[in-house]
Amino acid sequence: MSDPSPSPFSSPLPAQHWVRVGVGADAAMLDAWLMARAPLAVPEARARRLSLEALLAQGGQGLCLVGGTTAVPEAVECLLPVPLIHSLGTGGRLALVSEWWGPQARLAPCLDELADWCRAHGIRAIAVAPGLAGEGGAPAPGYERDGSGLWLRSLVPTAKRLG
């Protein structure tokens, strides 16, 4: 008897990366993930949890992007907290990226997702702290240094569709 040849359907598919906007229901899971990565004393942990919940509520203060892989769908691999601020230089709201929780290779896809979200919500620009720049200097394609030293990407808001 001969050994059957391996089926092309038996090989596992490579894990796909995903990025999504975090929601309030993610607060406990993200808080536990952050505590495992960077434990804080109780008062600071409470303050971080309140900040996280404010960003997850998307009440105009900002948002959090959460990323992972399809290999473990419910496991978090990266987190991008993004406060929204008013900017006189850009003449509107600005998404400020000053911290990143995850592997450097995953930052660019999260910034792309952030750009899409910002365009859809009328946010005119994204500013990224210089310390988050990748090996090529910029954090992702499309970013240029501005006078403040931040990496800036100007965005054209998308038209809203009704119906």
Results as ranks from 00 to 15, higher is better:
114 L>Y: 01
37 R>F: 05
35 M>L: 10
80 L>S: 00
122 G>M: 07
128 V>A: 05
81 P>L: 08
87 S>Y: 06
41 A>N: 09
8 P>Q: 10
142 G>T: 07
102 G>I: 09
24 G>S: 13
84 L>D: 03
41 A>F: 06
118 C>K: 01
66 V>M: 00
32 A>I: 04
33 W>G: 01
109 P>C: 05
73 P>V: 12
110 C>R: 00
7 S>K: 08
161 R>Q: 15
93 R>D: 12
153 R>I: 09
161 R>K: 12
77 E>D: 10
149 G>M: 05
138 A>P: 11
46 R>S: 11
108 A>E: 07
82 V>A: 00
46 R>W: 13
96 L>R: 15
151 W>L: 04
34 L>D: 00
136 G>L: 12
147 G>T: 11
2 S>C: 07
84 L>Y: 12
11 S>Y: 14
149 G>C: 09
65 L>C: 03
116 D>S: 12
53 E>R: 08
115 A>N: 04
75 A>S: 14
80 L>M: 02
27 A>D: 06
74 E>L: 13
110 C>P: 03
101 W>I: 15
46 R>V: 11
76 V>S: 03
37 R>S: 10
30 L>T: 01
44 E>S: 14
33 W>L: 05
27 A>L: 05
33 W>P: 02
101 W>D: 12
59 G>V: 02
151 W>H: 07
125 A>E: 02
54 A>F: 05
85 I>Q: 08
136 G>V: 13
118 C>M: 01
127 A>S: 14
34 L>C: 07
106 R>N: 04
134 G>F: 01
6 P>S: 11
92 G>V: 10
66 V>C: 00
124 R>I: 05
35 M>H: 13
112 D>Q: 13
52 L>C: 03
7 S>Q: 08
23 V>Y: 02
88 L>S: 15
139 P>R: 12
41 A>K: 10
32 A>F: 00
149 G>F: 02
112 D>F: 04
75 A>Y: 07
117 W>E: 01
43 P>Y: 03
98 S>W: 02
65 L>T: 06
126 I>H: 00
13 L>T: 15
56 L>Q: 02
47 A>Q: 13
48 R>Y: 02
43 P>E: 03
150 L>C: 01
81 P>T: 07
97 V>G: 01
140 A>S: 14
60 G>Q: 05
56 L>V: 08
116 D>G: 12
150 L>A: 02
43 P>S: 01
149 G>S: 14
151 W>T: 02
107 L>Y: 00
36 A>C: 06
141 P>R: 15
60 G>R: 03
75 A>V: 09
142 G>L: 04
27 A>E: 07
74 E>C: 07
8 P>A: 09
34 L>E: 00
149 G>Y: 02
66 V>E: 01
121 H>Y: 02
81 P>E: 02
114 L>W: 03
104 Q>K: 14
120 A>W: 04
106 R>E: 04
6 P>V: 15
23 V>T: 14
10 S>V: 13
26 D>W: 06
150 L>H: 04
29 M>A: 11
54 A>P: 04
46 R>F: 10
105 A>E: 15
36 A>I: 11
